[in-house]
Amino acid sequence: MSKYRNRLTHSRFVIAPLDVVKIRLQLQIHSPTANFTHNGPLYRGIFPTMRKIIAQEGIAGLWKGNIPAEALYLAYGASQFLTYQQTHLMITKSGWEVPESVKSFIAGATAGGLATTATYPLDLLRTRFAAQGQEKVYQSIKHSVRHIIENEGAYGFFRGLGAGVIQIVPHMGLFFMNYEFARQYLSTVQQLPSGWSDAIAGSFAATVAKTGVFPLDLIRKRLQVQGPTRQKYVHRNIPIYAGIFSTARDILSAEGLRGLYKGLFVSLVKAAPLSAVTMWTFERSLKGLTWLEEKKIVL
């Protein structure tokens, strides 16, 4: 199991720069058709954004927020898959006559909602560290936690949680529903090497689910950087946002529909391979545990 956990950690480290680029693009308040007082770097595209970050903040700038992101990824994955398996098993044992796709949707939505709530403070810290430029808002994880508690209270760790839960419930429901559908279809393709159906199905499911709920992900990011440090991040012109619907309305009014999809492409580039690795590892882990159980081997 530690081998699989290490593989997940390594994959997260590799795609961390894409995460920073996505967050920077999502927080960028810029539109060619609106008048904005632009205060901060102007990012366009994945590689130009990376080059600008390296030039201004050094190579380490591409890994800002990676420590809370690593912790988030491991904790979220563990709680998500455990809840998914248990919920799916509970529905099966209940005797309800529901299609497998509906079981997967319900189990995925439940798992996503609970895992998001449990690990949300780590998600918020990841966003805030990735959003800070040359001027550090937080000096360390310890400093960030202390600063948020002193200046924002416990609520500060859960800014944007509503958008996160509303986003993740349909996202994970769609993800697991499409994953199971694609995996069953690909299992009939004889030419695929062992394990490839899980990886391809994971990539496909991630692309569909991520695109469907992306505006809520962007809204969540903008709500996460609200508070007393709002104007200290690399983008210093982030407006004051109050809630999910008012934030969506303000973005549509000021930046147009495209404003709700800033960073979508890099998000898909990041999510598809990461989900492929995650689902491949998940299926291999299940098979490994099943083998141990059959052999009556106690860990």
Rank of each mutant, 00 (worst) to 15 (best):
K142A: 07
I53D: 06
P68Y: 05
R24Q: 14
L82R: 07
L122V: 12
G212Q: 08
Y261P: 09
P99Q: 04
S275W: 01
L174A: 15
L299C: 11
A154S: 06
I53E: 04
Y4E: 12
K136P: 04
Q226R: 15
T281A: 11
T127C: 14
T247M: 04
L218I: 10
W291F: 07
T207C: 13
I200D: 08
A276H: 07
A154W: 02
Q132N: 08
G243N: 13
I238V: 09
L257M: 12
A271W: 00
T33V: 02
A272W: 02
I29F: 04
H38T: 08
T37A: 01
S11I: 06
V277K: 02
S2V: 11
G108P: 04
S246K: 06
A199C: 13
A107R: 03
F105D: 02
Q28A: 05
I166G: 09
A111H: 02
T127W: 10
A182P: 00
E100W: 00
G259L: 06
L299Y: 11
I91Y: 00
K64I: 09
A242P: 01
Q85P: 03
Q224H: 11
L74N: 12
K142W: 01
S101E: 07
G259T: 04
G156T: 03
L268Q: 09
F13A: 12
F47C: 04
L174Q: 12
Y73R: 06
I166L: 15
W196S: 13
M279T: 11
L274Y: 05
G263V: 01
S94Q: 06
Q167H: 14
T117A: 15
L192R: 10
M279G: 05
Q226W: 12
Y261M: 13
S104H: 05
Q167F: 10
L125W: 08
F245G: 00
I200F: 14
A276G: 15
P41R: 05
F265Y: 03
K295G: 08
T92I: 03
N178Q: 03
Q85V: 01
V169M: 15
K210C: 08
E150N: 13
I141Y: 13
G108H: 03
E293R: 09
W291S: 12
E135M: 07
A163T: 09
A205Q: 09
L174T: 14
G108T: 07
A107M: 05
G112R: 02
E294H: 13
L299R: 11
A75M: 13
P17G: 13
R236N: 03
T37R: 00
V213N: 02
R220L: 12
A154F: 11
K210V: 12
Y179Q: 08
I29E: 08
T188F: 11
A69K: 05
V269C: 14
A206R: 04
F265K: 01
P193C: 11
V298Y: 12
A242W: 05
G95N: 06
H30Y: 06
L25P: 03
R126L: 14
T92L: 04
I238G: 01
E180L: 09
K287F: 04
I106D: 07
F214L: 03
